[in-house]
Design a protein around this nucleic acid. Structure first.
Lengths: 177, 177
DNA sequence: AGACAATACATCGCCAACGAGGTATGCCGC
DNA sequence: GCGGCATACCTCGTTGGCGATGTATTGTCT
């Protein structure tokens, strides 16, 4: 998730670590803050893997900066991660939102649609959070107001996302033809 | 999150690991599956911390089971984790849903309401995913259909959750008086 | 002059999660 | 009688995230 965000932001423009960190904080920080001690090692990992290169520049305000630029291999890796996300990226909303934030980089509308269809398939599976044996329980069957809340919220999210997915898939298919 | 779920399920009734695993899979497995190699070490951690005890029983169907029972200290720890969740448990939907699934165990309606109010405060903060400088961007301002989707879905979730929070807080306050 | 915040980057050690693999039992179908 | 599946538990090595801490510079407020 973090690596995807790094690659995604750098695909737009070279950035140094500090600015990158603020970009990531804006994107997902209110839900899941990124520690510096997570970001900088992640950058090193990606550098070591040849996905980005660093160039030292005198700092505009303070200490020298390491400007990060995506390599060609880094761009290809981003495309792979966008086009063939692991199942966790599809099912976990945090991961999924990060993926959506950069899905436009995947130039091919058909490839974009394929990813959306994976999410659609996931959402269309009957799944609850609470069961009576194998039978999923509906919000109305629960006494517990908190568990009822979970189902109510999840259902609202699901409904909104399904509507958006179908709309967006329709317009992507329109482009493809 | 995982430890909270273990404590929460065991608060209802003693269980052995295998059944516990299926309970957890039903609760959060469709979003974030739990590996066995994560669950069993977690159980050991909680045992070592004195939060639960294990009793070996002949297996009903197969190998012998380790029936897990919450200790008094385990019950108190559950209450602490429910009443004073870390900020991550409030902001991250995955964690938050797990917390909600067990919040009924916290007997005091005022304590339950206090937790809901923390989530309410978080949701009422103006926060987006995408910014133009410091200004949050609305869905309408975005060209990118995928980023627009993120905002549309997040907004629908937020609206549903705010309504539920206000309802539930009102009825919890009604009980307290 | 001194405190403090923001900028900018880095390392260390701890721990949680995970995949891969292992062990063993009981049941069902073939 | 043998393979496959569900039950039931476990360990090991790797990786990733994180808090604590460190280093240096510039600008601002007092």
């Amino acid at each position: 998730m973090l690596e995807l965000a790094i690659l995604g932001f750098l695909y737009d423009a070279p950035l140094h670590g500090y600015v990158l960190r603020r970009h990531i904080a804006a994107l997902t920080g209110h839900v899941r803050p990124v520690a510096e001690s997570t970001l900088y090692p992640a950058i090193k990992r990606l550098e070591k893997a040849g996905l980005l290169v660093r160039a030292t520049e005198p700092g505009a305000v303070a200490a020298p900066r390491h400007v990060l630029t995506l390599t060609a291999e880094g761009g290809r890796e981003l495309m792979r991660r966008l086009a063939e996300p692991a199942q966790r990226e599809i099912t976990d909303e945090n991961h999924w939102f990060t993926l959506l934030a950069f899905l436009r980089h995947l130039a091919d509308p058909a490839a974009q649609a394929a990813v959306l269809r994976r999410r659609l398939a996931f959402l269309e599976e009957p799944a609850s959070f609470f069961y009576d044996g194998d039978r999923p329980l509906s919000a109305e069957e629960l006494d517990d107001p908190f568990r009822r809340g979970v189902l109510t919220i999840a259902r609202a999210t699901s409904r909104a996302e399904l509507a958006w997915l179908r709309d967006t898939l329709a317009s992507l298919d329109g482009v493809g033809r």
